[in-house]
Nucleic acid binder design. Structure first.
Lengths: 349, 349
DNA sequence: TTGTAGGCGTTATCAA
DNA sequence: TTGATAACGCCTACAA
């Protein structure tokens, strides 16, 4: 069955193509009677508008790109995608996910992007862009909104989970629990690409200082430099070794992510240290693995970040925004919360 | 900066539009020298082809729809998406995710689908389609491939994880461990939509029988009917109550999914039963929460399912298939494996 | 190997 | 409110 075109519908309904187009788009300047005729005809012919043809003619693609720095099955990225999809899909937008894993890929992608007007807007999730890329992003003619991007002022809008606020809460919790010496555990981060999570080390240091921890009571433990991702067990083993051999004897550790935290807990227990009795551990993210592992952690909500980002896209595109989506300033920050579970407790010492 | 068109490039390169098109598509019938000229010109003008215009002219959309029955942040669906993306993206295809959550949405979507030639192919993931929908899917002119769809013969191709084979392994494990009375735990499944996981109950029963368990040594515990998703703790509490009050005193339980299994483990421990000493628990899926919770489980690989599905799409589209992707028969089944962790052990009784 | 020209299915402008 | 008709940017016979 050959696809029918707007011309067929027009003929069947006895009107012009233009009218069909108007009717099917719910334009206001169409008689109710005409609209009905058209809709009937369209139904009969099993017709819907071709997105491609519409796009070509109108210049609107009805598509927005979601650029992720992680794979689509990463907890964070999958959740952002879900949020973005939730608000964009009902508005008739396709969301076109794209992933960019390293600096080279990013360069290649952005070099080709400005030329390519194949989307109405772009959402960039979770990585820092260097000066060149920022320029390129600015240079393209479509609105851009950043998600969890440090200093995202080069985007037209942005949302982020406040790493600093989150870390502050974690540190304050540890202080309340009586921990005198605390540590931060972090995987090695390749220098050629800065991710959102890399803010967290800085955030931890800042929070620790502000809460009265001095150099002699702070440890930063991190993995050896490595090219490809380390198995978590290997990572944890390196980190725990540093933790246990530190002269500062930390009794609590914040981890960069839940995954790192969980690996830490397992390795600590393997070394016959009790968590939380001997060592407290706090994660970051509150991914679904955190509840599975009963991990105390900092909760952020990437689905909501995605929703908000999508709302900003709509806003920048001059579209009405669904009432159930929050929308505030162009650049917004979400305050993480802390979730107490089983891996933190009072310090004995 | 106004977007430049193929005409601009043609002029600058001193060739015809047709040649530009050919050159940029890597057609073989273009002189190397010509190609270079064209590429240079394109570069200079910051030009790339417009996907929309190409699609319209060629009839190929270079887009494939991925239809999920779960949200995009569900473990299974996110992983399938990743797999699909991994193989389709390098081939120049966009993957356009769409989610359909209930029977009504499915009806609406499929009713509109046949009319809508906005993709080159469709991948349908993880739900059973009733007769009508099957007909509609058959009726459309684009290739369809199913992922984890029971009896997917109405798709042009399909891949699935073998629930029966997986369950068989789980049951055999329990038998080896000396468990005489075993149970299966399952959430209530709304009757208006059949998911892939609903095969698992059947699979369990079949496996149990074949391994010599009779009616007096098999329990199926399931939640009360409910409309909206139950909190897992609530679900677990219902299930554990049934488990512990059964006259058959099961010493091991297979769960429909990892999430159910983990909730079960927590609730059992809350009731002061030891896992695995008193009760063994096996999950299904080997999602990332399973390793976080040290859960013994049946491992399946949805990323690989996604990859294979995408490869089949390519195949159906008559495209060459990347060498690193497995491709076999049109309808294939993947055998799950069992992963031993900490929630299973010998039966004491 | 390259060029010419018609057409892909809509939208938008301008009249009517 | 509706109807002609010219774009939109590219592809693909077909011809050269």
């Amino acid at each position: 069955m050959a696809r029918s075109t707007i011309a067929d519908v027009a003929k069947l309904a006895g009107v012009s193509q233009a009218t069909v187009s108007r009717a099917l788009h719910g334009a206001d300047n169409v008689t109710e009677r005409t609209r009905q005729k058209v809709e009937q005809a369209a139904d009969q012919l099993n017709f819907t508008l071709s997105k491609n043809a519409s796009s070509l003619a109108s210049g609107k693609t009805m598509r927005v790109i979601l650029l992720s720095s992680g794979k689509l099955n990463d907890w964070f990225d999958a959740n952002v995608l879900e949020g973005v999809y939730e608000v964009l899909d009902p508005e008739g937008y396709d969301v076109s996910p794209a992933v960019i894993l390293g600096k080279e890929e990013a360069d290649a992608y952005f070099a080709q992007l400005p030329k390519n007007r194949n989307a109405d807007a772009i959402i960039v999730s979770s990585f820092q862009l260097d000066g060149t890329l920022q320029q390129q992003l600015k240079g393209i003619d479509m609105p851009s909104v950043g998600v969890n991007i440090p200093s995202a002022s080069f985007c037209d809008a942005s949302v982020e989970a406040d790493n600093f606020g989150g870390m502050e809460k974690a540190v304050r919790l540890l202080k309340s629990l009586g921990h005198r010496s605390i540590a931060f555990a972090v995987d090695y981060i390749p220098t050629n690409m800065v991710y959102s999570t890399s803010q967290r080390t800085e955030a931890f240091l800042e929070a620790a200082e502000q809460n009265g921890y001095d150099e002699d009571h702070i440890d930063i433990v991190s993995a050896e430099p490595h090219e490809r991702p380390l198995p978590l067990s290997e990572l944890a083993s390196q980190l725990v070794a540093q933790l246990l051999s530190s002269q500062r004897h930390p009794t609590a550790v914040c981890a960069e992510t839940d995954a790192v935290a969980i690996a830490l807990v397992k390795e600590l227990r393997r070394q016959h240290l009790r968590v939380p009795e001997d060592v407290s551990v706090i994660g970051f993210d509150d991914a679904n693995i955190a509840v599975a592992a009963d991990l105390t952690t900092i909760h952020q909500d990437p689905v909501e970040l995605g929703r908000m980002a999508a709302a900003k896209v709509l806003q920048l595109l001059g579209k009405p925004i669904p009432t159930d989506v929050h929308v505030g300033a162009l650049h917004e920050s979400l305050e993480p919360t802390i979730v107490l579970r089983e891996t933190t407790g009072r310090s004995d010492s």
